[in-house]
Design a protein around this nucleic acid. Sequence first.
DNA 1: GGAGGATGGTCAAGCCGCTTGTCTGACCTC
DNA 2: GAGGTCAGACAAGCGGCTTGACCATCCTCC
Lengths: 136, 136
Amino acid sequence: MTRIRDDLYALSDARFPGLRMRHYRLLAMLPPDGERLSRLATHSGLTKQALAQALAPLEAGGYVEVLPDPSDGRARLVRLTHRGREADEAVRGRLDAVERDWARRVGEERYAVARAVLADLAPGPAGSPAPVTVEA
Amino acid sequence: MTRIRDDLYALSDARFPGLRMRHYRLLAMLPPDGERLSRLATHSGLTKQALAQALAPLEAGGYVEVLPDPSDGRARLVRLTHRGREADEAVRGRLDAVERDWARRVGEERYAVARAVLADLAPGPAGSPAPVTVEA
DNA sequence: GGAGGATGGTCAAGCCGCTTGTCTGACCTC
DNA sequence: GAGGTCAGACAAGCGGCTTGACCATCCTCC
């Protein structure tokens, strides 16, 4: 885990200064058309405040833009910028590389099983009941 | 994960008030004959200070006793008390139950594979190089 | 066409778990 | 002994989150 963080922080040092794990997670959650802060909050399991704090440096760094929601005067819409997409893609690339390394180390089939098991056991997007795929 | 924490915190509420994840982790690390704080620190990857802080409530609650090390006047030896052992065993019981549930949900064999893969990939006790068991 | 409540977001304060920095005292070597 | 190293303590601070109080907008329903 720390392995991953170190990897991603190297990316931050090289190309995306100041970005932390939570920022990358946040970028990865953003749908193409943007999303409301409070929906992001419930999806991520964080409070609106925590999210707003994480969002501030992303906006300041030009990774996301925050616009008023035309359909609701209270709401703010968070959307990836081009730079934000770059960061997200870079992260995904690194994560893929790490996973490929893991798979190589433990064997492709075994790794695939482990990954599937983890997916089965992982709770879905915050609050929803944990999926139960294999019962018998 | 949060599932585990909730489970353990219920244990805290019922029988071991004030104990947090880090305390249970710490109890689980203590060998029968006790261990030095600074060795615990290096093994756990935490600083001595962080460890000393986690230790304070454990000592206050009677889960561990801290004795002077007869072989070194600077060192302090941390050792489980009876109550500490009780807490540790209770935790292990809960963790086993959680794991049995997971295994039931995803299938025993698949779970066994996942567990082994994770063990292969997990870094050893802090700082040591990650073990590589299966190469081909 | 308000009144009252729900919802989206902000501001402020604080907690928890950890770190860095500085220090003291015991130990070890030469 | 003198110098350096090691075990641990004390103090301050930080990162990431929470809770609590608040304002503005929206929705509903009499």
